[in-house]
Design a protein around this nucleic acid. Sequence first.
DNA 1: ATCATGATGTTCT
DNA 2: GAACATCATGATG
Length: 210
Amino acid sequence: MPILPREFFDRPVEEVAPALLGQILAHRTAEGEVLLRLTEVEAYAGPLDAASHAYRGRTARNAVMFGPPGHSYVYFTYGMHFCMNLVCGEDGDASAVLLRAGEVIAGGELAATRRPRSSVRDLARGPARLCQAMGIGREQYGLDVCSPAGPLRALAGEPADPASIMAGPRTGVTGAKETPWRFWIDGDPSVSPYRAHVPKRRKATADGRG
DNA sequence: ATCATGATGTTCT
DNA sequence: GAACATCATGATG
């Protein structure tokens, strides 16, 4: 299976994101390899996008976003989960595509070991589940997915039929709520349910009740 | 199927 | 201190 060339990622992020649907993410570890067919993604467009991690400029966490395309941006969130992006655009654009869901097409046994209580359908249905099933964590930060010998690679699959690609608002973000940069394959069972962002309530309210 | 809620700790203000 | 690109679970229809 051929690898995706760097030029694939070196385009505007809103163009790369839908093109990623149907492509394959492969991750090889000592335990084996898992292959995932991407079915749902979200585009984030650098410092001008209020929903992007690059919105307030470069930090230690988002540094890889400001580098060349075709690299992985992995971040830790909610105290327990990892999510994974692929850097897009020209070097310095700081745009990236969040990998939200996919279908495990090889290495399902290994993926199931990593998510023992999950049904097959839910193995990579959601960005944090995807990372868990694929074995993605801090160690995979900044890897070049266009490197043929690398452990983490983006492979050329069967691109999704353009007629089956849907677009809508991004999930769980507070800024730029309207921008329809979530893309998914219509009707695919591995696509995650949409959830609008809800601010968390603190334990105690300071308004005198309770 | 939906809804509500607690868990957890890093990052940024 | 507050926010956070989430998930599992338990209640309910």
